[in-house]
Design a protein around this nucleic acid. Structure first.
Lengths: 218, 218
DNA sequence: CATGCAATGATTGTCAACAATCCACCTCTT
DNA sequence: AAGAGGTGGATTGTTGACAATCATTGCATG
């Protein structure tokens, strides 16, 4: 009947809720409330929650409960350090392998960003942005990088949702992605790595900057 | 009373069992047997198992059970690709930060390897080897890299346990570690990254080579 | 002899009840 | 009034029982 375990689908729903800030940072996860909401009993819910604890999206305080993590500036920097490591590795893998299909997908992802930019749709631009990075890691073919990346993306979206999809410098953003694909297409590993790292630095800078403007604490 | 959740400690015991091949690759995890062995009921055990599923150490077949992953050669390569990404990022962070305490710890870890080598104790050498890489990632201060690394190390040990700690070229092994620390100490980011990557390539080569000699399937 | 099928045993999936712990509030004492 | 201590309510932690599913075995049938 079910092709996927209950814990797996509940875990995904929890991740989505954290991303969208339905479950706010620092908030306690009430077992009774959530199990009722998801239509399951506390058993499967607790199993799903343990998955997110392993991911580091929830923090456990024994005999007290589970809480959504709160990201301070040091955490956000750490997320981007880890993303640079994971996506840098993924991009260099693709650059080395020279798979045409991967380049086509990446180009398509870039075009989607350009389109959203031209339409002036910041939400779509954000989605296209994340889609690009997802494609990048998926195309590397590394199951382990993909798994790590999944968690990092949730943490990133968690921050960006707080800013309600207002991009600071969308033109630069799109151009950075294009240049990454250019480097990959050229098969230039060093340049690829450099541009991924620069992109992460810039994204981090824009994020911190935007948060300061929003009087933003996370 | 308990400072750590039950799921957390059971999960660690499961990881150890997988590392040491007490739970062999491909083997099904019997809930009744394991819950009896650990002295807990099936509930907390299942929570712990879901943590390992999230890590990718267990694979879930709904309504059938959980199985220890089997690593083919492609998987092993993937582990080392991911390790290169994580440890490369960690090493460059330390190289940039120039923290004397980190260098001291890394040097100490190297000396422990040298000592084990001189004593001709392959098990101790292996432990010292893993300790070095643990120190490396811990010293980076990145919680996320550390979390990812933990899982990758379990998978690596899983392979090395199969070879019963027989090292092929221990001299080269120790020297590679020393050179990584040299590069970090010099603050040379590019050289650091290069040497970490080379070390991973060599470690992978030695591992595959050793497995071939052992008529080894994983 | 091979194949389909049903019964059976074992295992996973789910749940609700019980125990243990924590938190907030109140009271009593100094 | 401040603090210690106790009490009630709510939440987490754990367990055993029950339901659902799967693998196996044996049997009947073409």
């Amino acid at each position: 009947m079910h092709r996927e375990s209950t814990a797996s689908v509940i875990a995904r729903q929890l991740r989505t809720a954290i991303m969208e800030r339905t479950l706010q940072p620092g908030a306690q996860l009430s077992e009774t409330a959530l199990s009722a909401q998801f239509g399951v009993s506390r058993g499967p819910l607790r199993e799903a929650m343990q998955r997110l604890v392993q991911e580091g999206l929830l923090r456990s305080e024994p005999n007290r409960g589970l809480f959504v993590i709160e990201l301070d500036e040091a955490d956000i920097r750490d997320v981007y350090v880890a993303r640079a490591a994971v996506e840098g590795a993924a991009a260099t893998m693709i650059a080395k392998a020279r798979v045409p299909a991967a380049l086509r997908e990446l180009r398509a992802a870039c075009e989607a960003m350009t389109k959203s930019l031209e339409l002036g749709d910041p939400a779509a631009l954000s989605d296209a942005d994340f889609h690009f990075h997802d494609v990048l890691v998926q195309c590397s073919g590394s199951r382990r990088l993909a798994r790590m990346h999944q968690t990092l993306i949730v943490e990133t979206r968690m921050c960006l949702t707080a800013l309600e999809g207002t991009y600071q410098q969308p033109l630069e953003l799109v151009e950075e992605h294009n240049q990454i694909v250019d480097a990959i297409e050229a098969g230039d590993v060093k340049l690829t790595l450099k541009r991924v790292e620069q992109h992460m630095d810039e994204a981090l800078r824009r994020l911190i900057h935007a948060e300061d403007n929003d009087e933003g604490y996370v």
